[in-house]
């Protein structure tokens, strides 16, 4: 038997998997497509969940939102596992460099004590809020439909856990790795009136049953406001108040928030343009959660940035919603 290969006969008999071909035609597919589309099991389930006997184990009815095709919720970043970790690995490399630089140059020492205290009181406790974000996105991964959105949700969940760790590392960078700042920050999270609204909001989101409502309450309402407060307004404030060095330590969160917003915008837009039913449902959720967010964030935003800050953040939320066709 000869092992010489006749390359002329080495023609593929098909370009991609059949379900990908049915969606996109008979042509070579991208890795995002093959890794994403129709991966969720949809038919012929075996047992009723012991914890949710009225639904199938994979069940689109775990949200009130209805989609003809859940795979319309494509991630504009086209993240599947590989590009996701490689992208974040690059971002963390920069962050790691920033933290090293901060530590090596002793930049923590040059931060005056009132600013340090402000950071510990009003920034580091975000590490706890990020845990709620982690759980809310994990909830969507577990109960959502279609890998297009569920994979993006777990990427968001892991990101937010990463954020929680970065906020903690800021504390360690400020307290010389003793962990004292984290203990103090936790006390603020637990009892400082500035935080109680946010903490109550976070705890409330963790009791939401509908996974898309959890996405709205967390990734749309709260995150838009928090992102504007912390990564735009507070960023400017630090620049003007001798806190530039700290911006190095916030860079990851800031860049990540931008990246994530492209995805959440797209999810929101596709869902509300799908049907009036969806947009009404989403609007109803938003109106509930924005009232809660208003109450929750007022004391924190005032303490962090002054009285006008929250109104500015709400204007950003408004704009974001209008852009996807939601007029509140």
């Amino acid at each position: 038997m000869t092992i010489e290969i006749k390359t002329s006969t080495m023609k593929p008999i098909r370009n991609t998997y059949a379900h990908i071909e049915r969606r996109f035609g008979d042509k070579p597919a991208t890795r995002y497509q093959e890794a994403t589309y129709d991966v969720h099991s949809t038919h012929n389930f075996h047992y009723k969940p012991l914890w949710d006997q009225d639904r199938e184990i994979n069940d689109p009815a775990r949200t009130a939102v209805v989609m003809g095709d859940w795979y319309d919720l494509k991630d504009p970043r086209q993240f599947y596992y590989g590009p996701y970790v490689q992208n974040r690995s690059k971002m963390q490399e920069t962050a790691e460099g920033n933290f090293k630089f901060f530590e090596k140059r002793g930049l923590g020492d040059s931060i005056d004590s009132s600013l340090r205290e402000k950071i510990i009181q009003l920034v580091i406790p975000m590490r706890h809020a990020e845990v709620a974000a982690n759980l809310n996105n994990m909830y969507g991964t577990a109960h959502g439909t279609g890998t297009a959105v569920t994979q993006a949700l777990i990427f968001e969940a892991m990101d937010r856990f990463g954020n929680a760790q970065y906020f903690s590392k800021i504390g360690l960078a400020l307290d010389g790795n003793t962990g004292d700042s984290l203990a103090t920050a936790k006390e603020h999270w637990m009892s400082n009136p500035a935080w109680q609204g946010v903490r109550a909001y976070c705890e409330k989101t963790l009791t939401i049953k509908d996974w898309f409502e959890a996405f709205i309450a967390q990734d749309i309402v709260l995150d838009t406001l928090i992102n504007d407060l912390y990564y735009r307004q507070f960023d400017e404030w630090l620049t003007q108040n001798n806190g530039r060095d700290l911006l190095l330590l916030m860079e990851f969160m800031q860049d990540r928030a931008k990246d994530s917003q492209r995805w959440s915008d797209s999810v929101l837009k596709v869902v509300v343009t799908e049907s009036e039913h969806n947009s009404n449902q989403v609007l109803a959720w938003i109106s509930t959660w924005r009232i809660r967010a208003q109450e929750a964030l007022e004391p924190l935003a005032s303490a962090l940035l002054g009285d006008k800050a929250l109104a500015d953040a709400f204007a950003v939320l408004e704009k974001r919603l209008t852009k996807v066709g939601l007029n509140c």
Binding site: Y47, K48, L50, W51, D52, Q53
Partner: peptide, 12 residues
């Protein structure tokens, strides 16, 4: 007896 979240758990 099966241990489920609700006592009336049953499979068809």
């Amino acid at each position: 007896t099966i241990r489920a979240l609700r006592d009336d758990y049953h499979g068809e």
